[in-house]
Design a protein around this nucleic acid. Structure first.
Lengths: 102, 102
DNA sequence: TTGATAGTACGGATAGAATCGTACAATTGT
DNA sequence: ACAATTGTACGATTCTATCCGTACTATCAA
C-alpha cells in the first residue's frame, strides 16, 4: 500500500474541496466521521478497485488517515488537522441541509 | 448569455464543493465576496473564454449570480442561499488558514 | 455609422478523473 | 500447505475539465 499522507501544513483547501466534491467520497467521509471503519464497510455501488482510487484521493488530500492492521485498513477522519487548518469546515459540511439534496 | 441559475432548493453540496475546488474559481469567489464585480475585474492569467467557462461552473453550482447590465455582467455571491442551505460553509472557506498554503 | 469594449459560443487540443477487470500480495484460519 | 479474505496495482476505456483561439453578439461612445 502506498501510504503517503500529507502533513498538516501541506493541506490545501482546493484539494480538500475537490476531494469532497464527489458524491461517493462525500458519503464515505460522512460514514467515517461516524466512527473509524474499514474499506469494506462502505457500500457504494462501485467496484473495489474504484473505491481504492477514491480512498487514495481522500488520503492524498489529507481528509482521511489509513492505518493498516492485519489484512484490513482502518480509516479515520483527520479531524484535528482539518480543524486546525480550516476551522469550521467539516462541521459546516456535515451540518449541511440535505432536505432537498436528493 | 446562458443565464440559468439553480434555485436555492436545487443547490447540491458536492457541486458547490467541486466548483470551489479549483484555485482559479476559489480566488474569483473570494474577490466577489469582497464586493460585486464584473468579469474583467478578475485577473487570473487565463484567457477570457476560459474565464467564461469558470463563471459558468460557479453560476451553475449556484455559488454566484450574474446580472447583465449594459455591456458588463455584474457578479455577486449567493450568500443568503448558500448560508440557508449550508450554514457556515462560506465563512469556513473564507476564514481558512492560508499561512502555509503557498 | 463606425469603432471600441465586454463578454459569450463554439470547436478542438490536451490532460485528468472515474470506472472496470484481472492479476497480485499479505494475512488469517483450517 | 491450502484456501479464503482484504485490499492494492496496473492497464484500458470512457467521460469530464481545462484551456485556447477565433468568430460572434450586444452595447456604448464619438
Amino acid at each position: 500500500m502506498n501510504d503517503h499522507h500529507p502533513t498538516r501544513e501541506d493541506l490545501r483547501l482546493p484539494d480538500v474541496l475537490l476531494a469532497l466534491g464527489n458524491p461517493i467520497r462525500l458519503a464515505a467521509v460522512k460514514q467515517i466521521a461516524n466512527g473509524e471503519c474499514i474499506c469494506s464497510d462502505f457500500v457504494s455501488g462501485v467496484s473495489k478497485s474504484t473505491m481504492t482510487h477514491h480512498w487514495r484521493v481522500l488520503r492524498e488530500a489529507g481528509v482521511i488517515q489509513q492505518r493498516p492492521e492485519g489484512r484490513v485498513i482502518y480509516m479515520s477522519l483527520r479531524q484535528d488537522d482539518l480543524e486546525a487548518r480550516f476551522p469550521g469546515l467539516l462541521s459546516a459540511i456535515f451540518n449541511a441541509d440535505h432536505a432537498a439534496s436528493a
